[in-house]
Design a binder for these strands. Structure first.
Lengths: 234, 234
DNA sequence: CCGGATCCCCAGGGATACTG
DNA sequence: CAGTATCCCTGGGGATCCGG
C-alpha cells in the first residue's frame, strides 16, 4: 500500500481510501449491506477479481470491513462494513453530491445498476413538504426499476416496483435522474423521450432548496471522452 | 484518463478527481490560493514533475483550475481554482474530517508543512463560545508555526507568529494537533513532550460538540506501515 | 456456481536528467 | 523557474485456472 507520506489529514485519508476501486467497494457495501464476493463483483463492473480480492484484504486490515462466515444454510463468506467503515458515509455523500453535475453528460457505454439509481434518487432529492401526505414515485429505466417513498421529511428508496405509485417516470436514466434532481425540466425530458404518468406536481416537492442543482452545460459538454475499462452495460 | 464507466455519481466524481495526487493538488490551491508550479511542487513533497504537469493539464481540461499569465513584474504562470474547483471544498472537508482520526498514528518519515497545520487547526476546531472575547492561540512545531484566531463563532488560521497569543502550544505536531482536536488530553500531551504556556482554559472553547473526536487507539495502532514515496520531511 | 489465485501484458506512476 | 523527456518499475486490467 503506497502512502503519500504527508502529515495531513487529507493525505492520510487518501492513503487508506484513495486507491482505485476502494471507495466504490465501500459504496456497494453501503448500498447493499452484506455482500458475497460475487455480489460485489457484479456491482463493480470492470473490476478484476484479483484486485477485488486484494482491496478486500486491505479494507479488512484497515478495519473498514469485516468478513463473516455464514452458517451452513448459505455456507459462504460475507463482507460487511464495520462501524468505522460506515463512518465513511459523509465522505461518500460529499463525493456523490459533487458528482451529480457530471451525470448529465452522456457516456454511451456506461454500465448501470438498479441500486445505483435507487441510491442516486435518494441522495439527489429531499422532501420539502414534510407535512403533506406520503407519496410514492416509480422510476423505470429499461430493465432497471426503483421507487422512492417520500413523506415526513424523509426520502427512502428501494429497488423494484411499487404497488400504486402517484407518479411514474420512465425513460433513459439520464432523463429520469436529471428530472428528479431538477437538472432538466419536464418539457426537456418529455421532448427527449421520457414518459411521465401520474401526478407530476409531486416533482416540485422533491426539489432541494437553494442553488447547486443548476445544470452546468458548459462543464458537461467540455468533459471529453475517457477511455473505458470495458464494462458491460448491464 | 481512465474511467470507471459506471453511470453513478460517485464513480463519475472519481473519474475526475480520483486519480493519484489530484485531490492533493486541489488541497494546495484551496489552502494557498494562486500558486506557481514550484509552489505546488513544494507543497506536494514526493510528486514527480511530469505527474504534476500532467495533472494540471487534466484539471484545466476539466475546468477545475485555470492558468493565469502574470504580468511582467513577476512574469510567471499562476494556477488557481475556478468556481467549479472551489466547489470541491465540501469534499475536501469530508475527506479531512474522516482522516482526522488517522493523525494520531506516528509515521516517522512523514513530510510536514506549516500551512497544513494551519488548515488542520482551522478545520479541527470550532468556537464554542461565540460571545466571549476573541483569543489567539499560537501553534509551534519545530520550524513550523501557525496561529489561530478564535472569536465570534469563527476560527481563522494563519501561518507564522502572532503578536500576543493567549495560549501557546509547542511540541511534536501530533501532540499539538491532537490536543487541539481533543484526541489527547493535556496531561498526555505534556507527558509526551508538549509545552503549554498561557491560559489553557482556552482549549475547552475550541472543542467541537458531540462525538467524533474520540481517539480510536485500536484503529490507529492497527494501521501498519505503508511504503513511503521518498518524501523530504521538511 | 462460488471464491478466489495465477499469469501475462500494458499503462500509469516514480525518479532523475535535461532544456528553454 | 517551469516544465519536458526518458527510463524503469509497479500496479492495474483481462483472462484463465483451480479448489470447495
Amino acid at each position: 500500500m503506497r502512502s503519500y507520506a504527508q502529515y495531513c489529514s487529507v493525505a492520510r485519508a487518501l492513503d487508506v481510501v484513495g486507491e482505485r476501486w476502494t471507495l466504490l467497494i465501500v459504496r456497494e457495501l453501503m448500498q447493499q449491506g452484506s455482500c458475497r464476493f460475487t455480489d460485489l463483483k457484479n456491482g463493480l463492473p470492470g473490476i478484476a477479481t484479483n484486485l477485488l480480492s486484494s482491496r478486500l484484504k486491505d479494507l479488512e486490515n484497515d478495519g473498514l470491513i469485516a468478513r463473516e462466515e455464514a452458517p451452513p444454510p448459505v455456507a459462504t463468506t460475507l463482507y460487511a462494513l464495520t462501524a468505522e467503515g460506515r463512518s465513511l458515509e459523509p465522505l461518500l455523500k460529499a463525493l456523490g453530491d459533487w458528482g451529480r453535475h457530471l451525470m448529465v453528460a452522456e457516456h454511451p457505454g456506461d454500465a448501470f445498476r438498479a441500486h445505483w439509481m435507487a441510491y442516486a434518487a435518494e441522495s439527489f432529492t429531499v422532501d420539502s413538504e414534510p407535512e403533506a401526505r406520503p407519496v410514492v414515485v416509480q422510476l423505470i429505466s429499461g430493465d432497471n426499476s426503483a421507487f422512492i417513498e417520500v413523506g415526513g421529511g424523509e426520502v427512502r428508496s428501494t429497488v423494484g416496483r411499487a404497488a400504486a405509485p402517484e407518479l411514474t417516470i420512465e425513460g433513459p436514466t439520464r432523463l429520469v435522474l436529471g428530472l428528479l434532481a431538477g437538472m432538466i425540466d419536464m418539457g426537456q425530458a418529455i421532448g427527449s423521450g421520457a414518459r411521465i404518468t401520474g401526478n407530476s406536481d409531486v416533482l416540485a416537492r422533491l426539489r432541494r432548496a437553494g442553488p447547486g442543482l443548476v445544470p452546468d452545460a458548459a462543464v458537461s459538454s467540455r468533459l471529453g471522452r475517457r477511455t473505458r475499462t470495458g464494462a458491460s452495460s448491464a
